[in-house]
Amino acid sequence: MTTTSPIQAVIFDWAGTIVDFGSFAPTTIFVEAFRQGFDFDISLEEARVPMGLGKWDHIKQVGLLESVNTRWTKQFGRPMNNDDIDTIYAAFMPLQKAKVADHAAPILNAIEVVNNLKAQGIKIGSCSGYPREVMDVLSPVAADYGYKPDAIVATDDLAQGGRPAPYMALKNVIDLEVTDVKTCIKVDDSAPGIFEGHNAGMWTVGLLLSGNEAGLTLEEFQNADETTLEMARTQATEKFSASAPHYLVDTINDLPKVVADIERRIQAGERP
């Protein structure tokens, strides 16, 4: 294929970015896993706070939230420990594997956007906070919908760990045989995924309305008036602020205009 773009690769997150509008598959399962493991309730909002991390680390960070730690200590007489995290993770995994395929539908024109990138000779990478055994369930179902990235990296594929470190993004670089990280774009709906892109030396694009930070269902997004959407954008922008994405857009449907601008900037000699 003839490459027509100075961009070599775009590396996408999965839930909330390409599939699963609102990133509900992992968050609802976290709530259920805490309940199943210890008869302990967390809110969907609490489950969302560390989104983007590997799932064991995600559970740990939920346990460290002040609100959760206070209730946990009151209920069990001590803070959450690693054995507790292991128990919750053990409950999480079969629940997630059973439910993840139900949330594999692509987000708003995602397949068209990805296929247009491929038509320009741009390689498609992907990485996720999901472990490999979940990705092995999700990726074939996503492929049936038409999403077939050139590389898939799961959070436990690498001994060094997942986000916000750059290792998953850089494993995509190696697998895709990309020669220059400055020609790569990392697209994600969570702050840890944006930090991952920065740490890998890539351009970064945060998605405001399709993913974890806004937490809207597809129906809520489609039925919302502009005032409601602007409130959601403001909320999500604040959550992204520390990670400072190069670009913020509503959904993957808005990515082509960002790609065009990054192409212009690369051709002008700019770096991420």
Rank of each mutant, 00 (worst) to 15 (best):
V187W: 01
V187Q: 01
V187L: 04
D189H: 03
D189E: 07
D189N: 02
S190Y: 05
S190W: 03
A191I: 05
A191E: 10
P192C: 11
P192K: 07
P192F: 06
P192D: 01
I194A: 09
I194M: 09
I194K: 08
I194G: 04
F195M: 15
E196P: 09
E196V: 05
G197K: 02
G197E: 01
H198I: 09
A200Y: 08
A200G: 12
M202I: 13
T204F: 06
V205S: 05
G206K: 01
G206Y: 00
L207E: 12
L207V: 13
L207R: 07
L208S: 13
L208W: 11
L208N: 12
L209C: 12
L209N: 11
L209G: 13
G211M: 03
G211E: 02
N212E: 14
N212K: 08
E213Q: 13
E213G: 00
A214W: 02
A214I: 07
L216W: 05
L216Q: 04
L216R: 07
T217H: 06
T217S: 15
T217K: 03
L218P: 07
E219S: 12
E220C: 08
E220Q: 15
E220G: 10
F221D: 00
F221E: 00
F221Q: 03
F221S: 00
Q222T: 13
N223A: 15
N223W: 08
A224H: 06
A224K: 04
A224E: 09
D225L: 06
E226T: 14
E226Q: 14
E226V: 14
T227W: 08
T228S: 13
T228W: 10
L229Q: 05
